[in-house]
Amino acid sequence: MTTTAGPPAAPGAQPSAVPRGEPAGPRARRLLRAVPPIWLVLAAVILLIAWRNPTFVEPAPFLAFLRRCAPLAVLAAGQVFVIIAGEFDLSVGALVTAVVVVAARLSDGDAAHTWWLIPLLLAAGALVGLVNGLVTTRLRVPSFIATLGMLLVLSGAVFLWSGGAPRGSLADNFRQFGRFGVELPGLGQLPYAVLTLTAVGIGLWLLLSHSRFGHQVYAAGGNPQAAALSGVDVRRVRTAAFVISGLSAVVAGILLGGFTGVTAEAGAGYEFQAIAAVVLGGAVLGGGRGSVGASVAGALTLQSVFTLLNLLGLAKSLRDAVQGLIIIGAAAYAAHRLRRSG
């Protein structure tokens, strides 16, 4: 899997391995610096929730919380590819909705359809990503516009097809991914959604951080000219990033279908939450920085903040405002850190 050529530098043999320009602190502090700060923020928010509501961190409620997080986390893990490559994908929310509505209509609760439905949906998601990618890289439409257009096309198509009132229902074996799990003795249910998130997360992490393709994604977003002059096919790499994002939106839609109703608003707002999660995870809009792990942590943080607001009795309508403040704050923090070290 990994194609990193050559052994990593042995720490003992390289006394000068501390990067210039970064203060070399005691070992513990250096380790702490190596952890993306979003994990610390996440831990702090979870501690706050646990302080108000100690049962939250018991296995069953916590696993249920993770299950609720899974769709957003999967979306963020896909979106981060697009963001690192220097683009946006605003179409994922509408794609999530389309997955739920189309699956309900095509299967109408019949479990026998699920097994061809899922590959079909994945193929459709890949196609949406491919179109996003080709429109962005070949027609040179800025991805912000291209995927906004795709968002409108998808939601319009869903509306047209369902006549505004989605019909049908999802089969139980389709819903099980988002709803049920494996019984663990003493711990309750380990949700399939959490297993899916773990598998998708590890898979995408390997792809981004340990494959040739992943390195090219970073290069294509970090410095497209340098990447192209080093033989990277920047357009192909960016298109592939959109395909990954489209596939992750389908997976997120399937998970979300487990606990949401079949409505035309099922995935509304998820595109912004996914971008917010990625930004919280330290990715820089414009490309070149970010990671799958930190984006998943960003998604968990966003959800736990919502949980905390809920717990504090704040109105649900405050969510969007808080989310907006969080995005701005995270982006400002990232810009500040970059300026200081650049």
Partner: peptide
């Protein structure tokens, strides 16, 4: 502006072209 991906490591920048050529080259 045209040679390096500044926020990537020495390793990634060194292997950038070889990686883009193909598995064997890298």
């Amino acid at each position: 502006s045209e040679g390096l991906v500044l926020q990537r490591s020495v390793r990634d920048n060194t292997l950038l072209a070889a990686r883009s050529l193909g598995r064997g080259a890298a």
